[in-house]
């Protein structure tokens, strides 16, 4: 555990909690892509199956359970409790266009052709693109609520901090996982355009809206 890994995890946690609180406090999931949230629930479910087979640390177990629990709670709020506020017409990204190629790639490029490892690899690849339905939705509506942009900022920051964690681990531990690194780079790049808008608009007190 190094400072980048810890702040990365906390940034990820902050993002998840911000989104849950936003939906709960406003009693609305307007502007939130339910499809991205389904993908994140799928990411955590397929990645954390090792909870059933091995124990790593108290921290590890608790964080995994919180991530999974919050992901399903978010999906529940969007599709059940506050379903009336869900903007399904603008959330029109086709999930199969992500899940099917990612599943194929996980079977072809992985560290070990075993059930748990393929699902782990699938989750790494899927996470890197899981935000696309949300970004697609924002590009369709042309705007995002400020609290939604805070969520996206912390979610993007988390993987960027993991990149620094991997650089640290490479130098100090000789640890190196090409699959995680490449997927992490792709994931971080997808947020770059958003980061730019966040810094130039949202942090200066303006609402995030895209030019028509």
């Amino acid at each position: 555990m190094n400072i980048f890994r810890l702040t990365g995890d906390l940034s990820h946690l902050a993002a998840i909690i911000i989104l849950l609180l936003k939906i709960w406090k406003t009693r609305s999931c307007a502007g939130i892509s339910g499809k991205s949230q389904i993908l994140f629930a799928l990411v955590f479910t397929t990645r954390y199956l090792d909870l059933l087979t091995s124990f790593i640390s108290f921290y590890n177990t608790i964080m995994k359970l919180i991530y999974i629990g919050c992901a399903y709670a978010t999906v529940y709020l969007i599709y059940m409790k506050f379903k009336a506020t869900y903007d399904g017409n603008h959330d029109s990204f086709r999930l199969e266009f992500l899940v099917v190629p990612v599943g194929g790639l996980a079977c072809l490029v992985n560290h070990d052709f075993s059930f748990l490892e393929i699902l782990w690899t699938f989750s790494i690849y899927l996470e890197s693109v899981a935000i696309l339905p949300q970004l697609f939705m924002i590009s369709k509506t042309g705007e995002a609520e400020t609290i939604t942009t805070h969520y996206l900022f912390f979610l993007g920051l988390y993987r960027a901090l993991y990149l620094f964690n991997w650089i640290w681990r490479f130098y100090f531990e000789g640890f190196f996982d090409m699959i995680a690194i490449v997927a992490g780079v792709v994931q971080t790049i997808l947020y770059c355009d958003f980061f730019y808008l966040y810094v130039t608009k949202v942090l200066k007190g303006k609402k995030l809206s895209l030019p028509a």
């Binding site: 790593i56 590890n60 996982d177 699959i179």
Partner: peptide
């Protein structure tokens, strides 16, 4: 074994 991925990272 280096084929098993790191399950400590989240």
């Amino acid at each position: 074994d280096d084929v098993v991925t790191d399950k400590d990272e989240l």
